[in-house]
Structure formats: structure tokens, C-alpha cells
């Protein structure tokens, strides 16, 4: 065991794993985190605590993770390269591990121009690849990036990374994934899958390269509440692939509540699809602002109760 995390145990046991996203609030309300954590307790292996996603200031992911732990939810602390240099990141990695965090997800981070402080300087002292390698070296080689030893209590974290099968250059995406695996990514969560065809094609290459045997691939899925949400993602979020048929299908449902139900159905179909794609080890649900739907979807997808490990 690299980390003793539940997520690691489920994946190494060969069980289909489930994670879900938990976005911290834009305030200091611990209760808001506890409330969202309720949707995750016992329903997922671990909950991803986002790190100032879309570059909007929110409660620190590590602080929110500590609150999640107190509720009995295992967190995956997301860490982006946008806001901290290597000194602050290593310090926060030690702090997170000390608070009981066992999973980390390494990302470059949404650019600050998308957020509510576009005037901010970005850091990008290291990139996501180098962050993965840094966490691995801290865990396995017990050294800091400087080469100085961590004499005791090295942070034992299960290391995650992300990949976007829908971004360009498409041919390079698998090579980049291979680099992340080489750097030390134990698991991969993908960008939201809506374009199942493109995802399957990408997975074929992943499997051909044998990468699914060196890391665990979890397909990212987002249940959407309306055709507008889909339309927004298609036009406003870079690197998203959303087939027009899906938007038309949502649009064809006039009643708002029925549209939500259609969104859930689409998500359930996606779960079915990805479960049958070779090399997919689990799913990562990202119900942006709709965390309460997580248990509903998992129940209807027959993914509850979660396995004992």
C-alpha cells in the first residue's frame, strides 16, 4: 500500500471505484462543507475537494478536506500549480498528510483570467507533471524537491492526475498521459465525458500502450440539469467535446424537472458505456453545484452500496 487510502484499496482490489466532487464554499462556513459531505458519506470511495476551481476564491481545499474527514468522508485534495510555488506546495503537502489526507490530485489549474481575480499574478513555478513527480519523490524517496531528506513521517499519498482526452493535440494526449504515469500518477481522472466515441477511441490507444495496467483510469462524468448548461460547456469551456445530439435531446424535453431527469438518464447511460470500455477502473462524478444528485445517480446505476475492502 502506498497510502492506506480507501480509494487505493478499492482500485487495487480490482473493484470499480467511485469518486465525486465536493466544491468548498466561497466563505468560511464549515457547515456548508459538512452539508455537502452528507451526500458522499458511504456513497463514494473519496470526494475530490477542488482547489479554487475556475480561479474563484473559495475555502482552502486542505481546510475543507479536514472538515470532510471529520464527517467520515475520505478526501482527494486537489492541488493546482497556479497559486503556490514549490515551497508552499511542499509545505501544504506535509500539512495535508498531517491532517489525515491520503489522496492528492495534481493539476495545472484553471488560468486566473477566468476567475474573480483576473488581475492576479500566477505562479506556475512548477507544472502538473513536476508536481506529480515531486509528491512521488516525497513519498517514495523521502526527499524534498531540493534533494534534502524527509527524515521521518514522509507524506504517504495516493497520487492522482488528470487528463483531457478531448483537448488538442489529440495524438499527443496519450503520450502526455504516459508521461504522467511515468512521473508517478497512481490514478487518472478524466475531463467530463460526453463524447463517448472520442473517449472510447482515446481509451483504445491508452490500452494499446498498456497504460491502464500502470495506472487506474477513472472516467469523469457530469450530470447536467438543462440543455443550457450543456450549451454553455460546449461554447465556453475550452477542451470540451459535446455532441449536438445530446443538446438536442435535452432541448426536446420542455419541462424543467423532466430535463433534470433526462440529464440523470444521460449520465446513467454514460456510466453504463464507460463501465464496458476496457481499461476504465472507475468513475469520477462532477455534479457542478448539484452534489445532492450524487447518491441518486449511484443508486440508480447500481453502484451502491460501495464494496467493503
Amino acid at each position: 500500500m502506498k497510502s492506506d487510502s480507501r480509494l487505493e484499496k478499492v482500485l487495487t482490489a480490482g473493484r470499480f471505484a467511485v469518486t465525486a466532487e465536493l466544491g468548498p464554499p466561497q466563505n468560511a462556513n464549515a457547515e456548508a462543507v459538512r452539508k455537502k459531505a452528507q451526500h458522499c458519506i458511504g456513497n463514494v470511495e473519496a470526494a475530490n475537494i477542488t482547489d479554487n476551481q475556475t480561479a474563484i476564491v473559495r475555502m482552502s481545499s486542505i481546510a475543507a478536506a479536514a472538515i470532510a474527514i471529520s464527517c467520515g468522508v475520505e478526501p482527494v485534495v486537489q492541488m493546482v500549480c497556479r497559486d503556490r510555488n514549490r515551497i508552499a506546495m511542499q509545505s501544504d503537502i506535509l500539512g495535508a498528510a498531517a491532517l489525515g489526507v491520503k489522496n492528492i490530485l495534481c493539476l495545472s489549474g484553471d488560468h486566473q483570467t477566468f476567475g474573480n481575480h483576473p488581475q492576479a499574478a500566477n505562479v506556475y513555478d512548477i507544472d502538473s507533471m513536476q508536481l506529480i513527480a515531486m509528491v512521488k519523490a516525497m513519498r517514495d524517496d523521502k526527499i524534498f524537491l531540493s534533494g534534502d531528506p524527509i527524515k521521518e513521517h514522509e507524506p504517504r499519498l495516493f497520487i492522482g492526475a488528470v487528463e483531457n482526452p478531448f483537448a488538442d493535440p489529440f495524438e499527443y494526449r496519450v503520450m502526455r498521459l504516459a508521461k504522467k504515469v511515468e512521473a508517478g500518477a497512481d490514478f487518472i481522472q478524466t475531463q467530463c465525458v460526453f463524447d463517448i466515441e472520442k473517449f472510447a477511441k482515446w481509451m483504445e490507444t491508452v490500452v494499446a500502450e498498456g497504460l491502464h495496467e500502470r495506472t487506474y483510469i477513472m472516467a469523469g462524468l457530469t450530470p447536467v440539469r438543462s440543455h443550457r448548461a450543456l450549451q454553455y460547456m460546449k461554447t465556453q469551456v475550452a477542451g470540451m467535446s459535446i455532441p449536438d445530439e445530446l443538446i438536442k435531446r435535452m432541448e426536446a424535453v420542455e419541462d424543467k424537472e423532466q430535463q433534470k431527469e433526462e440529464g440523470v438518464k444521460i449520465c446513467l447511460e454514460m456510466i453504463d458505456h464507460v463501465r464496458n470500455i476496457k481499461g476504465v477502473s472507475g468513475i469520477h462524478l462532477m455534479p457542478i453545484g448539484w452534489e445532492s444528485i450524487t447518491p441518486v445517480i449511484l443508486k440508480r446505476a447500481d453502484l451502491l452500496p460501495r464494496p467493503e475492502v
Partner: peptide
């Protein structure tokens, strides 16, 4: 690169264009 990345494009690279602009 808006993120000064050294190990390839971020997930925001689409159709040859940067997500920032």
C-alpha cells in the same frame, strides 16, 4: 504559454487555440 508549462499542453488547448484568449 499562459501557464509557462514545460511538459506539454494543459487541458484547455483546443483547435490550436489557447483557453485564455
Amino acid at each position: 504559454c499562459a501557464k509557462k508549462l514545460l511538459n506539454g499542453p494543459c487541458g484547455g488547448s483546443a483547435d490550436g487555440v489557447c483557453e485564455v484568449d
